[in-house]
Design a protein around this nucleic acid. Structure first.
Lengths: 158, 158
DNA sequence: TCAATTATCTCGATGGTCGAGATATTAACG
DNA sequence: CGTTAATATCTCGACCATCGAGATAATTGA
């Protein structure tokens, strides 16, 4: 079945390399704005939620970035101090603290990550719809395999 | 030119999702072995070098994972304490400290990451060589775009 | 031999993360 | 209502990864 195993291995390596470069984009954004990686992950989570029309609470944010409540407090303190987010007490359940991104932070994120997305889409103009259908299927298949590893942890032997 | 822009945007989102899952694999490996993310990156760098037939020195490792010498010392201390690496004074230049992975660490890494690579290659058996050629080209193109962003940092406006 | 360079390590300080517990709010129930 | 349990967030103290500055050791060149 494996006509050319070497080519398939090379693709796996290409994928890893892409992953490294993608991480570097986040790293660069962090350096540019004086943030650490956790802060960037948090901002991305908040932006994603905002795009879905939801406002994250401190607790939900902690789940999204896998931090305990103490760390979330410190995290939001940092983001609030530099003006990237605002704490807003939820009027319906005043135990909750909703997080709202400032316009400037939203703009910076959209510029950086949105710009990348735009360029990626632009580069895909060189592909036919049929070719992109193949890529789409491949990404879904690979993600499923990776997801299984991330969840199950070790290989079947364990 | 863009026959279906929505499909292209969806692919960009799929790619980001894959990136997240791929990071989770490293995270899982770290938890399983009581390591932090830096330690895992270091072990991967040492493994990659070993695969190329080179033995990393402390300094080279620091460049690979972007840490100062003080941090590298602490890092290697941690890895050595749990028996994943050995410090070996280079007999030709005794200022240098070469890092050698223990067999157990090498085996654990090969099992975890090698297993993933194997499964990825296995999943690619469902693709024709022509289809994989498209994927290959696409990965190279996307990596180039991402690389440009990671290097140049911000978008053209900056 | 002596000075300059290179490679690594030591030390003290900074900062992110966490566990345990405190505080405030809401929900459940008699 | 009043009391208790559950939920959401915050405070406090401690741990550990990282770093900058400087120390130590080895090599190179004159």
């Amino acid at each position: 079945m494996t006509r050319d195993a070497a080519a398939r291995q090379e693709i796996a390596l290409l994928l890893r390399r892409l992953n490294v470069e993608l991480d570097a984009v986040g790293q660069r954004f962090a350096e540019r704005h004086g943030l650490n990686r956790t802060d960037v992950r948090a901002l991305v989570a908040i932006m994603d939620a905002a795009r879905r029309g939801e406002a994250l609470t401190a607790g939900r944010l902690g789940e999204a970035v896998d931090l305990r409540s103490a760390s979330v407090t410190a995290l939001v303190d940092r983001l609030e101090k530099v003006g990237h987010v605002r704490r807003v007490r939820d009027p319906e359940d005043r135990r909750r603290v909703s997080l709202e991104m400032s316009d400037s932070a939203m703009a910076a994120g959209a510029e950086h990550f949105g710009g990348l997305a735009r360029d990626l889409v632009g580069a895909m103009a060189a592909y036919t719809d049929d070719e992109l259908a193949v890529v789409h299927r491949w990404l879904e298949d690979m993600t499923a395999v990776i997801e299984a590893h991330a969840r199950a942890g070790g290989p079947p032997g364990a």
